[in-house]
Structures are given as C-alpha cells and as structure tokens.
Design a protein around this nucleic acid. Structure first.
Lengths: 195, 195
DNA sequence: TTGGTAACTGAACAATCGTTCATATCCAAG
DNA sequence: CTTGGATATGAACGATTGTTCAGTTACCAA
C-alpha cells in the first residue's frame, strides 16, 4: 500500500511538525522516536524523511520558526510613546505570545542542549536579538530618567525570566484570566525597574 | 578481573551520582546511557546496579537529594526580624544556594517529565513546600502592611522564576560577583512587592 | 488509455539501549 | 589457611534507535 487518496504532501508536512512539537514538549527530544512521531501522524517512519532531512533538522526547524515568529510578532507590536509604555507593551506582549504557544516555548527553552553547535549558535543569536529589544527599552528609559536601573543586562534577564515563568504555572480556565495575570505582572515589572 | 585493590563501595557510590549529575545536566537524562556514566566512573555498566536499582532511581535520588538539601538549608537560614528582612534573606539565600549547584538545579527543573508519576508527585510536593515558604513570608508581609501584593501565589511564582533565572546567565569570573548580583536582584524583588 | 511522478510502505541495516547474571577477584574475619 | 561476603567484569538478552531504499500504490496530465 502507499498513498490512499488525493495529494497529501501539503497536509502531511505540517502534521509532522505538529506531532513533533507536541511529543518533544511532552517527553523531550531525546525520548521521542521517529516511529512515535510517525504513528501520531498515521504514517510509517520512513515517510517522515520526505519532510525532514533528519531528526535534528526537525528540532531545529521548530525552534527557528518559533524564534522567527517571536521577533516578527514583536516587530509588529505597537510600542507606545515612551520607554515606560514600551516596557508595558513588551511585558504584556511577552506573556500573551508565550501563553499562546506553550509547547514551542517549552522546547525553545529545554532542548537547546540537543542542538548541534551550529544550530545552537543560530538559535542563540535570535534569542540575543530578542533580549536586545528589551535592553533597548530599558536603556532608553534610563537615559530619559523614566526608569531606575542599576544594570541593564541584568534587569533584562530578570524581567524575561519572570515573565516567561508564567508558562510554568498558568493553566487555562484557572483562577485568573490572561489579562488579569498580565496586569499583575506589569505591576511587578514596573516596581522592579523603580517606576 | 574484578576489584583491583581495597574497598571501593564508599568511593564508587558517590562517584556514580556525581557522574550522573554532570552528564544528565549536560546532555539530558534520556540522552545519557548507563554505559556513558560507567565510563565516566571508570567501571563497567553492570557495576552501576550495585549502587542504584535502575536508571530512573538514579535520577530520582539526585532530585530528591537536591530538594531535601534545599529545604534543610533554608530551614537553617536566619530569617531576620520582620517580613521584609525575611524576604531579603530568602532572595539572597535562593540565589546563593542555586548558584552553588547549577547542575542539580538544571536537572531539578528540566527532568521532571522523565520521572514516573509516583516520583514526580514526590518531587512536586517538595517543590510546593519550598514555594510555600516564600508564600508565608509574602502573606506575613501583606498582613503587617510591609508589602503591597495583589496575589500572593502569583508574586511567589514570579519572584522564584526571576531569582532562579540567574542560573541561566551567570558565569563564574564574569562582570559581577555573586554578592553584586544578589544586591541588584534584591532591589528588584523589593520593588516588585512595592517596598 | 497510458505514462510519469509524488507519496508512501515495509523490510532491512548496524548501533545502541537498560538490565541481568554467571563468574572472578579481593579483603577481612575466624 | 580457609571461608564468605563485597565488588566488579564481560558477555549476553531482547528491544529499540535513526536512517536508507527498493518496491508499490494512487493520482494527474497527456
């Protein structure tokens, strides 16, 4: 047996990435076999290689796509009139974007060590670029006297860690809505930068 | 051939755990084989089973030991005279303790999904206990009017995520000493709780 | 109706996995 | 000097791993 009905290439490709995303997030890259992914898609393991060069490329594609989308989405986001408004925009954007794709976020943070050196460098560069966006806001706010920050790099890392941490405990349908969570985190971020 | 010289049990046991700790942190639990651990220790794979029931128990032991040490160390820590001082003590303690054992921290956060359900529940309970320590401080501070917090659980998670984040970027011999880092993070924590 | 090709199967490859076990060696105690 | 337990080897187990590939099918265009 082979192809059952119709042209499947444009359907199977995305389904492979979806299955890999879910399974990698749930069990970890190293613990998931190509056969498990294939079973999830409803296909034999060999067919996966029509859509990815190898397992490593599958992981890298997921991570690079995630980072590209992150940077593109932030670029499209309205930044407000000053540094404080930009920081609020960043905080709310970060929480919203990350809560919308918990699996991709999980993978992007947990599977860095399973990338080859070359692929790791590429993802790391994108991450630094995103961190740079926040650093720019903090620097502008400091120069304008809007914020009180003793170390920009350090504050940037602290804020990102705090905001990303939402993903570890937030559950849909829980006690607080996403907006309520974002409100409270923005309060804390503002306090942390002395504004 | 078997044992070369002397009694090794009290030496090999810890060495197995050390090797597992390092390798699990570097490559991930699922990506490390028992043979790799054995090679690091300088022993054949079969000998590992004199010191651990199986691979899963090895992981669980590392994580439970880490959590036990964390809780014991915090219990021994001076807490100050009021909630604000206790929060400062907690912040500085958390950074110090975590920076001293980056491998164990990494494993405790990354390998939860590789635990059996039973083992996961045990580790999770210890983690909740630690989070409860911080929540108690925040609640006391709120009741005493020392702190301005809108949601204790949420603030607790935010603070812990922020503090633990230090481990992702701090490098020994870098721009800032541990004390300088702790000073700045304490400033941010204090701002985040409105004090 | 035919031919070509995209999509897929199913078997096969060598390598590696966690774990067990019979065997060997060493040390301390009787 | 003998014995027994602790410590380790090294081979073996079946299962599974990522990946390749020759063959098979289903569809579309001519």
């Amino acid at each position: 047996m082979a192809r059952k009905t119709g042209s499947h290439s444009e359907i199977t490709g995305p389904r492979v990435r979806e299955a890999a995303l879910t399974l990698f997030a749930r069990h970890g890259f190293a613990a998931v076999s190509m056969r498990q992914i294939a079973r999830e898609v409803g296909v034999q393991a060999g067919a996966l290689y029509l859509y990815t060069k190898d397992k490593q490329s599958l992981l890298f594609d997921l991570m690079r796509t995630h980072m590209d989308e992150l940077l593109a989405a932030w670029a499209d986001e309205p930044k407000g009139q000053n540094a404080l408004e930009a920081l609020e925009a960043f905080s709310r954007f970060h929480i919203r974007f990350h809560l919308e794709r918990p699996d991709a976020v999980f993978i992007a943070y947990m599977e860095l060590r399973n990338l080859t050196d070359e692929n790791f460098a590429a993802i790391e560069a994108l991450r630094r670029q995103y961190e740079g966006e926040l650093e720019s806001i903090l620097r502008a706010g400091q120069e304008a006297g809007e914020l009180d920050i003793s170390d920009i790099r350090l504050s940037s890392m602290a804020i990102i860690a705090m905001l990303t941490g939402v993903n570890t405990w937030y559950r849909e349908g829980g006690r607080l809505s996403r907006e309520a969570v974002a409100d409270r985190y923005w309060d804390m971020v503002r306090g942390a930068v002395g504004a």
